[in-house]
Design a binder for these strands. Structure first.
Lengths: 213, 213
DNA sequence: TTCGAAACTATACGAAGGTGTGGGTTCGAC
DNA sequence: GTCGAACCCACACCTTCGTATAGTTTCGAA
């Protein structure tokens, strides 16, 4: 469908990719060539649907998107991606953009909004920023996910005890609040520390904060 | 200089104000009237310098700014305010804005960027968002400032001990690291808890995180 | 019904934390 | 030089925490 989809370089699932979405084949090709010239992997798609159907959006990278897309609006597509749980940074391009459109995109978290004509360097800068943002997001989300996984192994009681501990309550108070004996609290507490892989209360507090406590 | 500067309503230093900056007197007046019609305090200024010289920027509120200002550029003024340590939310208005200008303003944290002609409701909505943002910022900055004040009363050693405690180290380890006895660590630790008004280690960890530890 | 997970309890002991009292040094300001 | 702040230490005492052993009960799934 698109000869630029398979780049000549490595396709390691860890190197970041620019997903280019534009309905104009010549623009797609020009952009992919631009990225290849700076050794950046890029794949081109002709529509939002094409991207959703054929791209591996779990890879790190960013999306470079024309606001005027066949079928869907680029701004709506941005929101649609978010609803799907995809947090990949988005850069917009446009030939006929206006200010309200720009404001809406930026409010929704777009990395940049490039009005044609733009210099090659502008787009490369934006991609660099987007890649960095993606790395940061992934790092945070990985840390968060790891803690969530640990928390899943906790029983209901252990959850309650953890919540009380990170509030700074003493075992005695926790026992009273939960209507159980202090020795049982100690038991649960020990289990919490072990399951959460926390080596100190300070450690546990930080992990609990990632869980939103 | 401007008859709309003193609003008819209360001038309590806690009610939020919209600081309107525009070089066109008729627009200034129209905007102030608009805000008065919804019982929102507003003050008008003819230039950025006028605002800096005559406005009490420590009051809660937001700044409603034309990007094209006499003397200074509105975007540069936005950055200038930040350098002065002023974190008041900014809303831009413009009659002749372009997309790069919009992107730059939004990246710099503007609440909104309104292209004329805009509806009254648009601007009122933006102001409501800006007021909320200001409240949030002030609340956070107050909490942060309070903790900083407490931290200032700590001696050097107490600081060191606090840092070690929130890392989850035991008194024994802290003593070894600092080359002092465990009993002295306990002394400093007690002082830290008292001075920082922390009732538990969990409490201390949270306060220390506000300090960037 | 049998089995396992979860929850609970008790006794016991050692480790760690917290506080008070009392006393010491150093160092800079008044 | 005197005073206060910061820093240091020890003894004593109590509280809180953490863990191990050993056992009970409940409840839901196989």
């Amino acid at each position: 469908m698109n000869d630029a989809r398979k780049p000549a370089k490595t396709t390691s699932p860890d190197t970041p990719v620019v997903y280019v979405v534009d309905d104009d084949p010549s623009i797609r090709e020009a952009l992919v060539d631009l990225f290849l010239s700076v050794r950046t992997e890029a794949e081109a798609f002709e529509s939002a649907q094409d991207l959703l159907d054929n791209a591996d959006l779990k890879r790190p990278g960013c999306i470079l998107l024309d606001v005027r897309l066949p079928g869907a609006n680029g701004l709506d597509f941005q929101l649609h991606l978010e609803k799907l749980g995809n947090q990949m940074p988005v850069i917009f391009m446009t030939g006929h953009g206006d200010i309200p459109m720009t404001v809406r995109a930026m409010k929704a978290g777009a990395v940049d909004f490039l009005a044609k004509p733009f210099r090659d360097q502008d787009i490369l800068d934006a991609v660099a920023v987007a890649f960095q943002k993606d790395r940061d997001l992934r790092q945070q989300s990985a840390a968060n996910g790891a803690v969530s996984e640990l928390a899943k192994t906790l029983t209901r009681r252990e959850h309650e005890v953890m919540a009380a501990v990170v509030q700074g309550l003493m075992n005695k108070q926790i026992a009273f609040n939960l209507g159980i004996s202090e020795i049982t609290v100690k038991l649960h507490r020990g289990n919490v520390m072990r399951k959460m892989e926390a080596r100190s209360v300070a450690d546990l507090v930080r992990k609990a904060e990632l869980l939103g406590l």
